[in-house]
């Protein structure tokens, strides 16, 4: 990778008259890795505020641990490879924030630390660093701790044991768990404003939509992916709802509950691990939505966004192969 860029620079300086260089030709401006990461951080601001409002000190603690460990892990691992440390592009910070927002507020500190090291080490730097990872690093870290520390990440792990000064939200079961185990249904208003228990970033649909809209307007996130996810979930949940009109857990609950909006707007839209073409992004989004609904209604887990994102990340190379766009006027590409 670095070798290539060095060569490109060399050819550019040698041939100034006819400027021949591989794309992308639109340089500068705001679409650098650093600016995109900053955009994601800005987009996550409303989510941060809501989680601080709902979970208070607990949110700040997990967030600080995750971001700190991710930055440290990035520093250690790049130093081990004797590469230039690229903390300036904020990608490690973004990974840490997203990982923290997908953990329960009551997560023990070692879960957050190990999750961060797994995210950066296994999820990103084992593949060669930013831009080369196949799977979303934050989701790899979360899956790792979810399997390794089932009790901390299971339904019971979300509920704080009785102590003074615990935020209200932390004393109740998460909406998805309450639905699966007791059949209780949270109100749409709570799900919209975020006054429920759950992973730190997922509780408020409003904050996710606000931040997500910013990302979409800035074009940091591809609009096809969240739209595809919401469309698939809407159609499948709508169908379920039509078949059973008395169901209390409606389409609205499905769309605003759990990590769906957070996942669709902030996790699935990671430009590194999502397909390159528009058609591919539609397939990617629709696939995530469909798998989320499959896992929500059939699997032993109450929520499936993490698994859906990881599964669809795995097939992104294949999607890219199948959706090679035809150049205008050119022949049909015979081989990818």
């Amino acid at each position: 990778m670095t070798q290539e860029t060095v060569n490109n620079d060399a050819t550019e300086t040698e041939a100034p008259v006819t400027h021949v260089a591989p794309g992308p030709h639109l340089g500068g401006g705001c679409l650098t890795a650093r600016w995109m990461m900053l955009d994601v951080l800005i987009g996550l601001l409303p989510v941060l505020l809501v989680s601080l409002w709902v979970f208070g000190w607990y949110a700040a603690r997990v967030l600080a641990i995750c971001v700190g460990s991710c930055v440290v892990a990035e520093g250690i691992f790049t130093a081990m490879r004797r590469r230039q440390c690229r903390l300036g592009d904020f990608s490690a910070v973004v990974t840490g924030v997203i990982l923290a927002f997908s953990l329960p507020g009551t997560a023990p500190w070692y879960v957050a630390v190990i999750g961060s090291f797994a995210a950066i080490g296994i999820g990103k730097l084992a593949f060669g660093g930013l831009g080369q990872n196949i799977f979303n690093p934050a989701m790899v870290g979360r899956a790792f701790v979810m399997i390794a520390f089932t009790s901390a990440m299971a339904a019971g792990g979300y509920v704080a044991s009785e102590k003074a000064g615990v935020p209200d939200a932390l004393t109740q079961a998460t909406p998805m768990t309450a639905l699966q185990q007791e059949g209780k249904v949270a109100s749409l208003g709570d799900l919209f404003w975020g006054d429920t228990n759950g992973s730190l970033g997922e509780t408020s649909a409003f904050a996710c939509l606000l931040g997500g809209l910013y990302l979409l307007i800035r074009r940091t996130a591809a609009w096809q992916i969240p739209l595809g996810v919401l469309l698939a979930v809407g159609i499948i949940a709508g169908g379920q709802n039509l078949m059973d009109l008395q169901a209390k857990w409606t389409v609205g609950h499905h769309l605003m509950g759990g990590a769906l909006l957070f996942g669709a707007l902030f996790i699935a839209t990671d430009p590194v691990t999502s397909p390159l073409t528009g058609r591919g992004r539609w397939i990617f989004g629709l696939g995530i939505g469909a798998i989320v609904m499959l896992l929500r209604s059939l699997s032993a887990y109450p929520e499936g966004v993490m698994f859906a994102v990881l599964l669809m990340n795995a097939v992104v190379p294949l999607i890219n192969r199948w959706t090679v766009p035809r150049p205008v006027g050119g022949p049909v590409p015979s081989k990818a």
Binding site: I122, G123, A126, I134, F135, V140, A143, F144, I147, I291, L294, L295, S297, L298, S299, A300, Y301, G304, M306, F307, A308, L310, L311, N313, A314
Partner: peptide, 21 residues
């Protein structure tokens, strides 16, 4: 093998689909 491990993590999401189905 690392990728296989992550894939295995992802496929764990299907746990329990058969009993519920």
């Amino acid at each position: 093998l690392i990728v296989a491990g992550i894939l295995a993590l992802a496929f764990m999401g299907f746990t329990g689909v058969d009993t519920k189905l």
